[in-house]
Simulated scan of single mutants.
Amino acid sequence: MPPSPSPTRFAYLGPEGTFAEAALSRAIATPEGRRDPQPSVAAALGAVRSGDADAALVPLENSVEGSVPATMDGLADGEPLVITREVFLDVAFVLAVRPGTALADVRSVASHPHALAQTVGRLRDLLPGVTPLPTTSTAAAAAAVAAGQVDAAVCAAIAADRYGLEALFDDIADHAGAVTRFVLVQAPGPLPAPTGNDKTSLTAVVGDRTGALLELLQEFAVRGISLTRIESRPTRQRLGVYSFSLDCEGHVADPRVGEALAALHRMCDDVRFLGSYPRADGRDNRPVGDTSSDAAFADAETWLARVRAGEV
């Protein structure tokens, strides 16, 4: 299968000035191409599904607040999409206001729920009695401040600059060093080639039966495949039926990873492949023992072929 053309039309969680825009700039070195901010994660993914964009850059998880449900659910439902790249971005927040606004003048503050959760302690100290308001993104909060709809925003410094605001306080996160993982998502097609240090993502729906999750985990354990993330989401069908979203080390082209996914396809109610792509978190995949190496799997396949051919 020929390689897919490089995407030139990008959607991202907007408006302009979000951390997603910064992550997209890191992922795509060239300034060429179209970059369209979208009002929500669902809209960004929908732009790819409709053909209005070649790829979308959306947040998947944060080191402090965990996963982004809108992205997890958006990838698990609807027309299939695959992750082709991940980007890790250090996240720092400022308390931004219109020029000339003093802290005593702030009667309302807004931001994305994840940003508010990461700054709840500082906001309580700085703005006691003020109830934070949720918005679709940190940049949307900055835009609302610029429009006079709220007094202050928790946002990135780039958003404050973009909307003509000034920072009353820098680095207001309760836990310094937060990192958000973003993923570049495209329509299914030729996958990135294995690099030897890859991740594979998928969702799997297991039946409501005793030991179902253990059976899923064993398919990875017996093949020496390490999981880097696993969490459950309700399928919204009925209580007790869950979709497990997980990342594992390795590429679907690796024999042992491919065999594990095939096993899940047999045992699970549903499996959705979400992509194999280069690992970007600065870590190396864990060493694999001799009996679980790709070479061992290839040797076993060759032996089995000889047995089936009567060449015992």
Rank of each mutant, 00 (worst) to 15 (best):
V82Q: 08
E79F: 01
T101L: 09
T71V: 07
D77K: 12
A70E: 15
G74P: 06
P80I: 13
A102E: 15
V94P: 03
D77A: 14
S67T: 15
E86N: 02
G78I: 11
S67A: 15
I83M: 12
A76I: 12
L81D: 10
A92E: 14
A96M: 02
F88A: 01
G100Q: 02
D90K: 09
R98H: 04
G74N: 08
A92M: 01
F88N: 09
L89K: 02
R98L: 13
V91S: 08
A92Y: 08
I83E: 04
G100K: 04
D77C: 08
L95D: 02
T101S: 14
A102Y: 00
E79V: 10
V68N: 05
A70L: 11
A96Q: 10
A70T: 10
E86R: 00
P99N: 07
G74Y: 01
A92R: 15
A76Q: 13
V94H: 01
D90S: 12
D73G: 02
G74I: 02
P80C: 02
G100W: 08
L81I: 07
A102V: 04
G66I: 07
M72A: 14
A96L: 03
T84Y: 09
M72K: 07
L103G: 00
G74Q: 08
G74K: 08
G100S: 05
F93D: 10
G66K: 05
